[in-house]
Computed example of a mutant assay.
Amino acid sequence: MSTQDTARFAGKTAIVTGAGSGIGKATALRLATEGARVIASDIAPDRLDALKNEHPDLDLVTVAGDVSSEETITALLAAAGDRVDAVANIAGIMDGFQPAGEVDDATWERVLTINVTATMRLTRAVLPLMVEAGSGSIVNVASEAGLRGSAAGAAYTTSKHAVIGFTKSTSVFYTPKGIRTNAVAPGPVATNIEAPFRSQWAGERLGPIMQTTVPPVAQPEQLAAAITWLLSEDSANVSGVVLASDGGWSAI
């Protein structure tokens, strides 16, 4: 990282969800290291406490809670104050690779709520501040499952396709107001998100496909680099794109 890069977010306020671990944690730390005041959200308070305790030199404000709830959204905006320059919608959960004929209502509703509704609600909440400022950048974390049908179960695949659609719609409406919205589509990443096969049929159908196509597991810091680039002014002419950071999986 160059000397110039270390100040890309100086004086800016960023909100990062899912900041207690994995991609969210790596992104929160990268933004804060580059000068941002980071409002870090996660459902697990202990993870956020560890984040702050491990990095007392960084400007990290933590907000624990379920990001799909309006209560947590309100707390995030209160912590951010009257200006939000960047948002990274990273919090997400996996399904059990259940196909449409096996997915249960609880899994479907929870995955769609966390992966899609929470992204919409936080975006909706920050847009008035960004519109007033005439600037802002939002990055939503989609997935390789948003680009193909063979990377997850019905619920997760649907949710990540929805994130991509939401990203493009938001870009169309708000780019003219100075707000850029983009998405990152990761492949396999070393995070704490569990992805068990709860369907024998899914294992039989997807297992051989994944064995021949899935690239090596990426580190969270590699995704954080792509996310912070899209949030920064280095990507000033980029809006409405889905950046695949998947080790080339989408090219297969």
Rank of each mutant, 00 (worst) to 15 (best):
S2E: 08
G18R: 10
G20D: 03
G22R: 08
I23E: 04
A26P: 08
A28S: 14
L29K: 07
R30N: 08
A32N: 08
G35V: 09
A40Q: 03
A40P: 03
I43W: 00
H55D: 11
T62I: 15
G65M: 12
G65F: 14
D66S: 14
S68L: 05
E70P: 01
V84N: 13
M94C: 03
G96L: 06
F97P: 03
Q98C: 11
P99M: 03
A100I: 15
G101A: 12
D104P: 02
V111P: 06
I114L: 13
N115D: 14
M120E: 07
T123P: 11
A142S: 15
L147P: 05
A152P: 09
Y156P: 02
T158A: 15
A162L: 05
V163I: 13
G165D: 01
T170L: 15
F173R: 12
N182Y: 04
V184Q: 00
A185V: 07
P186V: 03
F197E: 03
A202E: 10
A202V: 01
A226E: 02
E233D: 13
D234L: 07
S235Q: 08
S235F: 09
N237S: 14
V242D: 00
L243F: 14
S245L: 09
S245I: 10
G247I: 10
G247C: 08
A251R: 07
